[in-house]
Computed example of a mutant assay.
Amino acid sequence: MRHGKKDNHLGRTSSHRRALLSNLAGSLIIHKRIETTLAKAKELRKYVEPLLTKSKDDSTHSRRVVFSYLNDKDVVKELYNVVADKIANRPGGYTRIIKLGSRLGDNAEVALIELVDFNDALLLANADKPAKTRRSRRGGTTKKTGSEAAAPVAEAEVVESRVAGEAAADDLEKIEGIGPKIAEVLTAAGIATFAGLSEATPEAIREILDNAGSQFASHDPATWPKQAELAAAGKWDELKTWQDELMGGREA
């Protein structure tokens, strides 16, 4: 009997259901939002949210437990290096389900499930829309004043200078164990390139992380300088081979 058992079997065997939810969870972590049936979205939420909570503890044991559910190392890397930093201050409720109506054919209810903290894609989409031209009551466009005309030029100069500054920096997130937040912390501390990171000692990096906050206490920078040295030398194949042996930037 099913007294008190409220899980939806989704019309599948236990192993098939587990594989389905594992694949859906991996797609959600990689793409941040997926479209599926409402029933699957509700079961996926119960499956993936404990894993998101688990990712806040960046330890070897935690990664192995999560890997046993996701069965994909690339997904685990994305979860710990990107998603975990984004949800660090959220106590729960990491996902949102939006109903999209019924699909043609089988009339199944369809829903969009997404990670709440990665909904900035909508803001970027709105920012890309062309600005509306102001028009006067006479039907003509309003003439820009001198300050308004000079504003785009000044803004362009700021953008060019920012792009030039970013071009001089390296993508520190290519180092396994470094996510967006840690990359920002290191850049603020003056370490913005692979060469700069390779010259830093693990002890110095540890001190930078400790000063940045207790949320970085579980990260181990022991391999970061050596990884950065390979990246600075352009030895990407050798770096990739070594990273496959690491667990969250730590020696396995």
Rank of each mutant, 00 (worst) to 15 (best):
K99N: 09
S27Q: 08
D85W: 05
V66T: 05
S198K: 08
G139P: 02
G92T: 03
E114D: 03
A168V: 15
R206T: 08
S214W: 10
V158N: 12
L104I: 11
A121L: 10
L79N: 03
A84C: 07
L230H: 00
Y47K: 08
K86Q: 13
K181Y: 09
S15T: 10
D85V: 08
E229I: 11
A217C: 05
R2T: 15
A88I: 15
D237W: 11
E176V: 08
S14I: 15
L230N: 04
A151D: 03
G179M: 03
T241N: 11
D74Q: 14
A195V: 14
T13D: 02
K129W: 08
S218Y: 10
P91Y: 00
E78V: 10
Y69H: 03
T201R: 01
G177A: 07
L24H: 05
S14P: 11
A39K: 09
L21N: 06
E229L: 09
K5H: 12
N107Q: 14
A154W: 11
D210A: 15
H9C: 12
R137W: 14
A111D: 03
A183F: 07
V159E: 08
G146K: 08
S15V: 12
A150L: 12
A151Q: 01
D128K: 14
I205D: 01
D237C: 12
S55V: 04
I34A: 06
R135C: 11
G165R: 06
R2S: 12
G177M: 04
L172H: 03
V48K: 02
L24T: 01
T141C: 09
I34S: 02
K56Y: 00
A19T: 11
E238L: 04
D220G: 05
S136V: 09
H31S: 10
K181E: 12
F194Y: 08
T145C: 07
T95C: 06
S15A: 14
N23V: 10
A169I: 13
R33N: 06
F118E: 00
L24A: 06
T201D: 06
L51S: 07
S14E: 11
R2K: 15
V76Q: 00
R17Y: 03
A204I: 02
T13H: 08
S68Y: 09
R2D: 12
A232V: 05
G146D: 05
V66H: 01
S102I: 13
R45G: 13
I97A: 04
S59A: 04
H9Y: 13
I175Q: 01
E49Y: 03
V163I: 15
V82T: 12
A195M: 09
R45C: 14
G92K: 07
A169M: 11
K54V: 03
